[in-house]
Protein backbone atom coordinates (compact mmCIF):
# COMPACT_ATOMS: atom_id res chain seq x y z
CA UNK A 1 0.00 0.00 0.00
CA UNK A 2 1.39 3.40 -0.92
CA UNK A 3 1.57 6.15 1.68
CA UNK A 4 -1.13 8.07 -0.17
CA UNK A 5 -3.47 5.07 -0.14
CA UNK A 6 -2.83 4.46 3.55
CA UNK A 7 -3.68 8.09 4.30
CA UNK A 8 -6.87 7.78 2.30
CA UNK A 9 -7.92 4.65 4.23
CA UNK A 10 -7.30 6.38 7.57
CA UNK A 11 -9.31 9.38 6.38
CA UNK A 12 -12.20 7.15 5.26
CA UNK A 13 -12.15 5.24 8.52
CA UNK A 14 -12.11 8.49 10.46
CA UNK A 15 -15.08 9.89 8.54
CA UNK A 16 -17.26 6.80 8.99
CA UNK A 17 -16.45 6.38 12.69
CA UNK A 18 -16.90 10.09 13.46
CA UNK A 19 -20.42 9.91 12.00
CA UNK A 20 -21.58 7.25 14.50
CA UNK A 21 -24.43 8.66 16.59
CA UNK A 22 -24.66 8.43 20.36
CA UNK A 23 -27.51 5.98 21.06
CA UNK A 24 -28.88 7.99 23.98
CA UNK A 25 -28.31 11.41 22.40
CA UNK A 26 -28.99 10.54 18.77
CA UNK A 27 -28.84 14.16 17.66
CA UNK A 28 -25.05 14.24 18.12
CA UNK A 29 -22.19 12.06 16.94
CA UNK A 30 -19.58 10.44 19.15
CA UNK A 31 -17.15 13.01 17.78
CA UNK A 32 -19.46 15.87 18.84
CA UNK A 33 -19.71 14.30 22.29
CA UNK A 34 -15.94 14.20 22.55
CA UNK A 35 -15.65 10.49 23.36
CA UNK A 36 -13.86 9.57 20.10
CA UNK A 37 -10.19 9.75 20.97
CA UNK A 38 -8.34 8.23 18.00
CA UNK A 39 -8.68 6.35 14.71
CA UNK A 40 -5.69 4.49 13.26
CA UNK A 41 -5.16 1.79 10.65
CA UNK A 42 -2.54 -0.93 11.15
CA UNK A 43 -2.08 -4.08 9.10
CA UNK A 44 -5.53 -3.99 7.58
CA UNK A 45 -7.30 -3.34 10.89
CA UNK A 46 -8.96 -0.12 11.96
CA UNK A 47 -8.21 0.72 15.59
CA UNK A 48 -10.74 3.05 17.19
CA UNK A 49 -10.15 4.47 20.67
CA UNK A 50 -13.08 5.77 22.70
CA UNK A 51 -13.58 6.88 26.32
CA UNK A 52 -16.73 6.61 28.47
CA UNK A 53 -18.58 9.70 29.68
CA UNK A 54 -19.49 8.08 33.03
CA UNK A 55 -17.95 4.88 34.41
CA UNK A 56 -21.30 3.13 34.28
CA UNK A 57 -22.49 4.49 30.93
CA UNK A 58 -24.68 1.67 29.59
CA UNK A 59 -24.40 2.96 26.02
CA UNK A 60 -20.77 1.89 25.60
CA UNK A 61 -21.61 -1.60 24.28
CA UNK A 62 -24.03 -0.18 21.73
CA UNK A 63 -21.47 2.43 20.67
CA UNK A 64 -18.82 -0.28 20.17
CA UNK A 65 -21.22 -2.32 18.03
CA UNK A 66 -22.20 0.74 15.97
CA UNK A 67 -18.54 1.60 15.33
CA UNK A 68 -17.83 -1.96 14.17
CA UNK A 69 -20.81 -1.89 11.84
CA UNK A 70 -19.84 1.51 10.40
CA UNK A 71 -16.31 0.32 9.63
CA UNK A 72 -17.55 -2.97 8.12
CA UNK A 73 -19.82 -1.02 5.82
CA UNK A 74 -17.30 1.63 4.75
CA UNK A 75 -14.20 -0.59 4.62
CA UNK A 76 -15.45 -4.16 4.18
CA UNK A 77 -11.95 -5.57 3.63
CA UNK A 78 -10.70 -4.20 6.99
CA UNK A 79 -11.04 -5.63 10.47
CA UNK A 80 -11.90 -3.36 13.38
CA UNK A 81 -10.83 -3.16 17.03
CA UNK A 82 -12.49 -0.78 19.48
CA UNK A 83 -10.30 0.14 22.46
CA UNK A 84 -11.54 1.91 25.57
CA UNK A 85 -9.30 4.29 27.52
CA UNK A 86 -10.09 6.05 30.80
CA UNK A 87 -7.36 8.68 30.90
CA UNK A 88 -7.58 11.54 30.47
CA UNK A 89 -11.09 11.39 31.91
CA UNK A 90 -13.87 12.75 29.69
CA UNK A 91 -15.36 16.06 30.72
CA UNK A 92 -18.13 18.20 29.26
CA UNK A 93 -15.37 20.52 28.05
CA UNK A 94 -14.75 17.83 25.41
CA UNK A 95 -18.13 18.52 23.78
CA UNK A 96 -17.56 20.30 20.49
CA UNK A 97 -19.24 23.59 19.62
CA UNK A 98 -21.18 21.76 16.90
CA UNK A 99 -22.34 19.26 19.54
CA UNK A 100 -23.49 22.04 21.86
CA UNK A 101 -25.48 23.67 19.07
CA UNK A 102 -27.16 20.38 18.11
CA UNK A 103 -28.07 19.66 21.74
CA UNK A 104 -29.65 23.09 22.13
CA UNK A 105 -31.60 22.65 18.87
CA UNK A 106 -32.94 19.33 20.20
CA UNK A 107 -34.18 20.95 23.42
CA UNK A 108 -31.32 19.88 25.69
CA UNK A 109 -29.53 22.72 27.44
CA UNK A 110 -25.81 22.30 26.71
CA UNK A 111 -23.35 22.47 29.61
CA UNK A 112 -21.49 25.61 30.49
CA UNK A 113 -17.74 25.68 30.96
CA UNK A 114 -17.15 23.32 33.84
CA UNK A 115 -16.05 24.73 37.16
CA UNK A 116 -15.54 21.57 39.13
CA UNK A 117 -14.29 22.60 42.54
CA UNK A 118 -13.98 18.95 43.53
CA UNK A 119 -10.78 17.11 42.73
CA UNK A 120 -7.64 18.35 44.36
CA UNK A 121 -9.08 21.25 46.30
CA UNK A 122 -10.25 21.78 49.85
CA UNK A 123 -11.55 18.48 51.15
CA UNK A 124 -14.32 20.02 53.16
CA UNK A 125 -15.46 22.35 50.44
CA UNK A 126 -19.20 22.44 50.04
CA UNK A 127 -18.85 23.43 46.39
CA UNK A 128 -17.71 19.93 45.50
CA UNK A 129 -19.74 19.79 42.34
CA UNK A 130 -20.04 22.13 39.43
CA UNK A 131 -22.20 25.17 39.90
CA UNK A 132 -25.07 25.53 37.48
CA UNK A 133 -25.72 29.19 36.91
CA UNK A 134 -28.44 30.67 34.76
CA UNK A 135 -29.22 27.78 32.44
CA UNK A 136 -31.32 29.07 29.59
CA UNK A 137 -34.52 27.31 28.63
CA UNK A 138 -33.87 25.64 25.27
CA UNK A 139 -37.55 26.14 24.36
CA UNK A 140 -38.13 29.85 24.99
CA UNK A 141 -34.65 31.11 25.84
CA UNK A 142 -35.58 32.46 29.27
CA UNK A 143 -32.85 32.39 31.92
CA UNK A 144 -35.58 32.07 34.60
CA UNK A 145 -35.19 28.34 35.15
CA UNK A 146 -34.75 26.04 38.12
CA UNK A 147 -33.39 22.57 38.77
CA UNK A 148 -36.15 19.99 39.29
CA UNK A 149 -33.83 17.07 39.91
CA UNK A 150 -30.05 16.76 39.89
CA UNK A 151 -30.41 13.45 38.04
CA UNK A 152 -32.19 12.96 34.75
CA UNK A 153 -33.00 10.40 32.07
CA UNK A 154 -29.34 9.48 31.53
CA UNK A 155 -26.21 9.72 33.66
CA UNK A 156 -25.07 12.85 31.85
CA UNK A 157 -28.25 14.94 32.27
CA UNK A 158 -30.23 16.70 34.99
CA UNK A 159 -33.92 17.68 34.87
CA UNK A 160 -34.78 21.38 34.82
CA UNK A 161 -37.96 23.38 34.38
CA UNK A 162 -38.52 26.84 32.91
CA UNK A 163 -40.46 29.30 35.05
CA UNK A 164 -41.34 31.44 32.04
CA UNK A 165 -42.88 28.79 29.74
CA UNK A 166 -43.38 26.05 32.40
CA UNK A 167 -41.76 23.43 30.15
CA UNK A 168 -39.45 20.85 31.71
CA UNK A 169 -36.20 20.17 29.85
CA UNK A 170 -33.05 18.08 30.07
CA UNK A 171 -29.83 19.86 30.90
CA UNK A 172 -26.40 18.40 30.24
CA UNK A 173 -24.60 18.27 33.61
CA UNK A 174 -21.24 19.93 33.95
CA UNK A 175 -18.84 17.09 34.57
Amino acid sequence: MTAATADRVVAEARVCVAAVLDPELPMITIEDLGILRDVQVHDGRVQVTITPTYAGCPAMDAIRADIEEAVHRALPDHGVDVLTVLAPAWSTDDLTDAGRTKLAEAGIAPPGVSRLAGAGTSTTSRAAVALELSIRCPQCGSPDTRELSRFGSTACKALWVCRACSEPFDSFKNH
Partner: peptide, 12 residues
Protein backbone atom coordinates in the same frame (compact mmCIF):
# COMPACT_ATOMS: atom_id res chain seq x y z
CA UNK B 1 -7.37 6.60 35.79
CA UNK B 2 -10.35 4.80 37.37
CA UNK B 3 -10.12 7.06 40.43
CA UNK B 4 -9.88 10.24 38.35
CA UNK B 5 -13.11 9.24 36.63
CA UNK B 6 -14.89 8.10 39.79
CA UNK B 7 -14.02 11.14 41.92
CA UNK B 8 -16.23 13.42 39.85
CA UNK B 9 -19.14 10.99 40.13
CA UNK B 10 -18.94 10.42 43.89
CA UNK B 11 -18.64 14.17 44.50
CA UNK B 12 -22.08 14.43 42.93
Amino acid sequence: AIAAKAVKEVAY
